[in-house]
């Protein structure tokens, strides 16, 4: 049964895993163009790109997806809107995007296998999985001035007292859109679309100047 279910979609591993293939993250051009100021003792924000992670969009009913996800990755689906949860290792996260849509982020190279296992587990249920790994990137922002920096950039209320760890929202960032997530006391994440990544990066460098923003590469 699962074989026939699998055949009704095109399961395609778009990852090229050989040393001979050069790979470029969405910020590759930005490093060239805008550089990356080194973090200093004065840096109140430090930015880092978490490159080449697996990004999967899951669509479907919460109950079936939750069961499958627990089985495959041992993470429960966050039920509440605008929240996310991590597996024990902290390397895999699942975020609520809408009542029938979640963003699963896994270490690079896992996406295809995870998709296949989820599809096998979900079989004939009503669901969809889409690999968007090439289309977005994850930036981490760490430091005590991150909320200040974000207040200059996003319309959503990012006051730490109102944006607990484990919250994540899709919102307006400058004139683009990003997903903002808080993954620790002073650690935040932005999920940025590839084509907007350079704009967002330049915006962050500019808005972060007063906090001596540094970039770890």
């Amino acid at each position: 049964m699962s074989e026939s279910a699998l055949s009704r979609v095109n399961l395609f591993d778009s990852r090229a895993d050989h040393a001979s293939v050069a790979v470029e993250s969405p910020l590759a051009y930005s490093w060239q163009r805008s550089g990356a100021p080194a973090p200093s003792a004065a840096s109140r924000v430090v930015l880092r790109e978490q490159t080449f992670l697996g990004h999967l969009i899951l669509r479907g009913g919460a109950i079936v997806l939750d069961e499958a996800l627990r089985e495959v990755l041992d993470i429960g689906l966050p039920g509440r809107p605008n929240t996310l949860s991590w597996d024990v290792s902290g390397e895999r996260s699942i975020q609520w995007l809408s009542p029938d849509e979640w963003l699963l982020i896994v270490p690079g190279g896992e996406a295809f296998a995870v998709e296949r296992r989820l599809r096998e587990r979900l079989a004939d249920a009503s669901f969809a999985i889409v690999d968007v790994s090439g289309g977005q990137t994850l930036l981490t922002l760490e430091g005590e001035a991150v909320p200040e920096l974000l207040m200059k950039s996003v319309v959503y209320d990012v006051d730490p007292s109102h944006f607990p760890v484990g919250k994540g929202v899709n919102t307006v960032f400058a004139k683009a859109t990003v997903i903002v997530r808080r993954s620790g006391e002073t650690r935040w994440e932005l999920v940025v679309r590839r084509s907007f990544a350079d704009y967002c990066y330049r915006w962050l460098l500019d808005a972060g100047e007063e906090y001596a923003i540094g970039v770890e590469r």
Binding site: E24, P26, A28, Y29, Q32, K152, A174, K175, A176, R194, S195, F196, D198, Y199, R202, W203, D206, A207
Partner: peptide, 17 residues
Amino acid sequence: RHCGELFDPERYTALHQ
């Protein structure tokens, strides 16, 4: 800050460079 190079988002393809 919506001025100069940040006036509006410029979207680039992966081949922009």
